[in-house]
Nucleic acid binder design. Structure first.
Length: 424
DNA sequence: AGGCTGTACTG
DNA sequence: CAGTAC
DNA sequence: GCCT
């Protein structure tokens, strides 16, 4: 053991027990705190020139990977098991093992304590949860002395989105029961089919991943029969949002204020600007709806049928799963997005350019198959470690370079010979 | 030494 | 274009 | 912070 006199991980067990957590859950919680702290600009806000400052986004990313690795530990890991993730898990290195050792010996992480004892850091972590306040604004607001949500409400320079969100702050923080989301999907589906019977509504996000509670609602509309080149689905949003307001489901819009003249006042000034032309073609809507007397965040999108598979995959998430599936796609010579899957090559610094047409994608499973990744049911799409190389049966991202190069996969012409129905 | 997903909307 | 969100 |  370390210098505390409590050997054999006893300090760690005590710390976990004090919070009613398993040792694993406690460790994950500590590292999640680090991830959240760096998301909120832990090494930017103080003005102190900490080692590695300016990399907080990368560290947030790093600690998310660490959390994913830790989630796969047993409930009460011994030291050997903790140490082993350093060699077994891609993205876990020496500094992380040192922190695990610190936890093992003392039950605490000095870094976490440091952050939680810093009022400005605590404020940043609180305020960054507000819609429209990100890594940049949160640093500036806290620098100006904002510490609480009440402080924030006093500001007169908030964006319209932030003001709207603050109206419902308490309600929006509450988890959404699963059946409320199904209900909203059905209501949207009913309105949608009045507008165009070819429309179908699908609830995605954590709902589709099987969660009993969600933070927001993700509903996707698919325009059946619409294919490449069709722009019909773009008009759907412009028509359905006013209907959903009339229906009483929507109460506020967070996006597209200029897109629906009947709900915005800036029409004359904006109608001629390029940004509004773009907004009129928008496929994404973000707003607030009311279900069972409680206001909730709603995201609504509309896609033509030929993009159903990649859109479904993308909006089902999780976000972390998407990230690493996209990285796997990149490693195999593709770019993956909600719009499709297409061969692409790296050209120049940080630039990836398409090297072939979008492929026709029949289903989510088809996307996994093309990428030679093991199909994962929505409920299993959690993190990096759920992205499995189906040629080895092991996680795609491994520490030791045991991943086999697959010439047939990066050879675009042969791939398309197997999947001749590429979309041009 | 550079990169860490890719895309859409706002101001 | 930077900032934000998903 | 870690990987290539």
């Amino acid at each position: 053991g370390g210098g505390t006199g409590l050997g054999g991980g006893a300090a760690l067990e005590d710390a976990a027990a004090n919070q009613g957590l398993t040792v694993r859950a406690y460790i994950v919680d500590q590292f999640r705190k680090l991830s959240n702290a760096y998301r909120a600009g832990a090494d930017k806000g103080t003005g102190a020139r900490m080692h590695g400052s300016g990399r907080s986004d990368a560290r947030e990313y790093h600690y998310k990977q660490v959390c994913a690795a830790l989630e796969h530990l047993s409930d009460s890991p011994d030291w050997a098991e903790l140490e082993a993730i350093g060699t077994q898990r891609h993205g876990v290195g020496g500094k992380t093992i040192a922190k695990l050792r610190e936890l093992w010996d003392t039950g605490r992480l000095g870094r976490v304590d440091e952050f939680s004892n810093n009022p400005e850091q605590v404020a940043r972590e609180l305020l960054i949860k507000v819609h429209g306040i990100g890594q940049s604004r949160v640093v500036e607001l806290v620098r100006q002395g904002v510490r609480t949500i009440s402080d924030l409400r006093q500001r007169t320079d908030l964006s319209p989105q932030t003001s709207i969100w603050l109206k419902y702050h308490d309600q929006l923080e509450q988890p959404i029961p699963r059946d409320h989301i199904g209900e909203v999907r059905d209501r949207i589906g009913a309105v949608a089919s009045r507008i165009d019977p070819r429309l179908k509504a699908i609830a995605c996000g954590s709902y589709r991943r099987g969660k009993m509670e969600s933070r927001d609602m993700d509903v996707m509309l698919i325009l059946r029969g619409a294919g490449p080149g069709s722009t019909e689905h773009l008009e759907v949003m412009a028509r359905i949002v006013p209907e959903l307001h009339a229906d009483g489901l929507l109460t506020d819009d967070l996006t597209t204020p200029g897109k629906f003249p009947q709900f915005g006042k800036k029409t004359a000034a904006r109608v001629t600007t390029p940004s509004v032309v773009q907004a009129e073609n928008s496929i994404a809507y973000m707003g607030i709806c009311i279900v069972g007397g409680v206001h909730r965040r709603l995201d609504l999108r509309c896609y033509p049928e030929h993009q159903e598979a990649p859109a479904l995959l993308h909006f089902t998430g999780s976000g972390d799963f998407n990230r690493f599936m996209s990285r796997a796609a990149n490693a195999r010579g593709f770019t993956l997005s909600e719009l499709g899957l297409q061969p692409s090559v790296i050209k120049g610094p940080a630039e990836r350019v398409p090297s072939g047409p979008h492929l026709e994608l029949h289903s989510e499973a088809h996307i996994f198959e093309i990428l030679r990744l093991e199909y994962k049911d929505p409920s299993e799409r959690r993190d990096k470690i759920d992205v499995i190389d189906s040629t080895t049966g092991r996680p795609f991202f491994q520490t030791r370079e045991s991943r086999t190069a697959l010439p047939a996969l990066t050879d675009t012409s042969r791939l398309q010979a197997h999947h001749p129905a590429a979309i041009t």
